[in-house]
């Protein structure tokens, strides 16, 4: 889908990495409960938030994503006990690094969404889309090829 760089009709592309046990299941629940959120969000399933390498996030920005969300279990609830703690530390650094590169820090977000929080899943995705739509397209890291 060619992204329209004109601001008026700009629809952002948002990639969400969701851990299988909580956030992906939260996304499923949003579906089963027929909640709605913008179709701008596309989910990639990973076993745990700790499986998400900063490389994946940078690659998404390079390939034209306007926003990236990593969602995992609430602190203390990771299916693998401690994965989201490592994720949290890593992504705090990545956020500062992106800011250092001159990118708006809101473009990269980390959220804890449990399997029972379908409403939260929908809310986070809606808010993120709105925020990024307001920010406009990601010009900073997008490949110019």
């Amino acid at each position: 889908m060619p992204v329209n760089l004109k601001l008026q009709s700009f629809e952002p592309l948002i990639i969400a990495f969701c851990c299988n046990w909580c956030s992906y299941a939260g996304g499923d629940l949003a579906g089963t409960s027929r909640m709605t959120y913008p179709a701008n969000v596309r989910v990639i399933r990973v076993p745990c938030s700790s499986r998400v390498s900063s490389n994946f996030i940078l690659r998404a920005f390079q390939r034209g994503a306007d926003g990236v969300v990593v969602a995992g279990c609430h602190p203390g609830d990771c299916h693998y006990t401690s994965g989201n703690y490592f994720a949290r530390r890593r992504f705090l650094l990545l956020q500062r690094f992106l800011e250092f590169l001159g990118m708006e820090p809101e473009r990269f977000q980390v959220h804890w969404i449990s399997a029972s929080e379908g409403n939260r899943f929908a809310a986070v995705m809606t808010e993120t889309t709105d925020k990024i739509r307001a920010l406009g397209p990601n010009r900073k890291l997008r490949d110019t090829r």
């Binding site: 592309l13 990639i15 596309r42 490389n55 690659r59 998404a60 390939r63």
Partner: peptide
């Protein structure tokens, strides 16, 4: 869930 698989997913989804 290899690096190659997830990278390919990122490329395709974007």
């Amino acid at each position: 869930f290899t690096n190659e698989q997830i990278m390919a997913e990122v490329d395709a989804i974007c």
